[in-house]
Simulated assay, not measured.
Amino acid sequence: MSSQKSRYDIVSIDGDGIGPEVCRSAVQVLQAACGESLLAFAHHEGGAGHYARTGHVLPEDTFAACRQADAILHGAAGLPGITYPDGTEVGNDLHLQLRFKLDLFANVRPIRLYAGAESPLRHWKAGQIDYVIVRENTEGLYASRGGGIVLRDEMATDTIVVTRKGVERVAKFSFELSRKRQGAPRDGKRRVTCCDKANILRSYAFFRQVCTEVAAGYPDVEIDYAYADAITVHMVKRPDFYDVIVAENMFGDIISDLGAATIGGMGLSASAELGEHHGLFQGAHGSAPDIAGQNVASPMATILSGALMLRWLGDRHGDARLSSAADRVEQAVETVLREGLAIPRDLGGTASCTDITAAVCRQLG
């Protein structure tokens, strides 16, 4: 049954560094694609700068709004020198708290080479690199954050956590995602690659075992396996082989950035953190405080993350208006890049953040 709404409430958290610039850009593009009445954006505070002023990286009122919202759009968070007493970065804790409190178990990172964006891998063209990395987002090695042990300033330990529930749900998510896609560019096969270190560690052998069990319920989707070290070679040598890759938290974090490098860099790296009831969307590039406020940051990753948000909301609510708008935003970005209408500086151009925003909006009519 459709749960289409007349208006979708979106919390926007600008954050730090270039966060406010790219978040404002994405909001402008999304409203151009959907109309101002369909999406209602409410701005809320959070991030390292807010922590420095108030002692809270994620204020209670911001979290309450996120919990009630239809989706969350985030710019970026983190500033140099603003850390907790244990040395860990404050900025990261904004989305980490949201991740765990809202149970956002699937971190989705599309790796797609757009026309007009040159890959550092020779000979690869638009359409030949098009896969998605799904990273388990709530356990793995990062479950130890804040709980590791430092003993007598001589020894430190962190513990990896892999549960059946955690692996089952992210594996099912990955197989379902593959069913919605068109298969790997190389051969058109729907395929889920399990990335692990099952040859060395029992935790990863268990991860692989559960993925294999889940695969039995998806006979139409091929299962593939790759060790985390080997996949870094394969992602460079044969990126067209991949459709969906599922990985434990830390491995997924690492290979996602490698994948982004193969399509032109972090400036095109969109991300979605999804749970059963909530979704958080942000560019994966960080806050880049060294260029903040100069109107030189590329908003492309945040705009593309906004497109992921529209598609997720469209699927969740059976709303074709949102799904269509997501397609239009991605097409507008590709047109701007392909035709050289506003090339970001990180891709070799000179376009400002406002130039890029205006160019994408013009394509949306």
Rank of each mutant, 00 (worst) to 15 (best):
R67H: 12
T350Y: 04
A284S: 14
S271W: 01
H278I: 15
D243V: 13
D14S: 01
W124F: 15
G259C: 00
A215L: 03
Y204H: 12
Q4N: 10
D327Y: 12
Q282H: 10
I303G: 02
V161I: 11
D130W: 04
H50W: 02
Q182P: 00
T232P: 00
L274V: 14
M155L: 14
V170Y: 14
A342V: 07
R191C: 11
V214R: 08
G146C: 01
K197T: 07
P59G: 10
I72Y: 04
C361L: 13
E60C: 03
S37T: 11
D220S: 11
G183Y: 02
I254V: 10
S256D: 01
A42V: 13
L141W: 06
I160M: 05
L201V: 15
V296S: 15
S25F: 00
H123Y: 05
V221D: 01
C353A: 14
N92W: 05
D196T: 12
M250V: 09
T54Q: 02
D93W: 13
R362V: 11
V11L: 09
I343E: 04
T159Q: 12
P110K: 02
A126S: 13
A126T: 08
V132N: 07
R135S: 01
L113D: 03
G75I: 05
A65Y: 14
I343L: 14
A64D: 07
Q182D: 14
K197F: 13
A106E: 12
G267L: 03
L313Q: 13
H56M: 11
G49M: 02
G78H: 00
P289S: 03
G252P: 10
A326H: 07
D355N: 05
Y114A: 10
T193C: 15
C211E: 06
A106L: 06
F251H: 06
G252E: 04
A292P: 11
M235V: 05
T62P: 11
Y218K: 10
T138V: 08
M235L: 09
V233W: 05
V296A: 08
F41K: 06
N295D: 11
A292D: 02
C66A: 07
G146R: 01
I129D: 10
Y218D: 08
R109M: 14
D16M: 12
R67C: 03
E21M: 09
V244M: 03
A270Q: 06
R109L: 06
E21V: 07
F173Y: 15
R328N: 06
D14Q: 08
S324V: 15
G188Y: 02
E276W: 00
A52G: 06
I111L: 01
V192Q: 03
S298H: 01
V27S: 09
I255W: 05
F251I: 08
P85R: 13
D61R: 02
S305E: 04
A326L: 09
A325K: 08
C211L: 12
H44E: 08
K125P: 00
G217M: 04
T163W: 02
Q363P: 13
E136T: 01
Y227D: 10
E136C: 12
T354E: 15
L322I: 09
V360C: 00
V329P: 13
I356E: 06
G286C: 05
D61V: 15
H50I: 13
L304N: 00
A65I: 04
A64Y: 09
G275L: 10
A69Y: 05
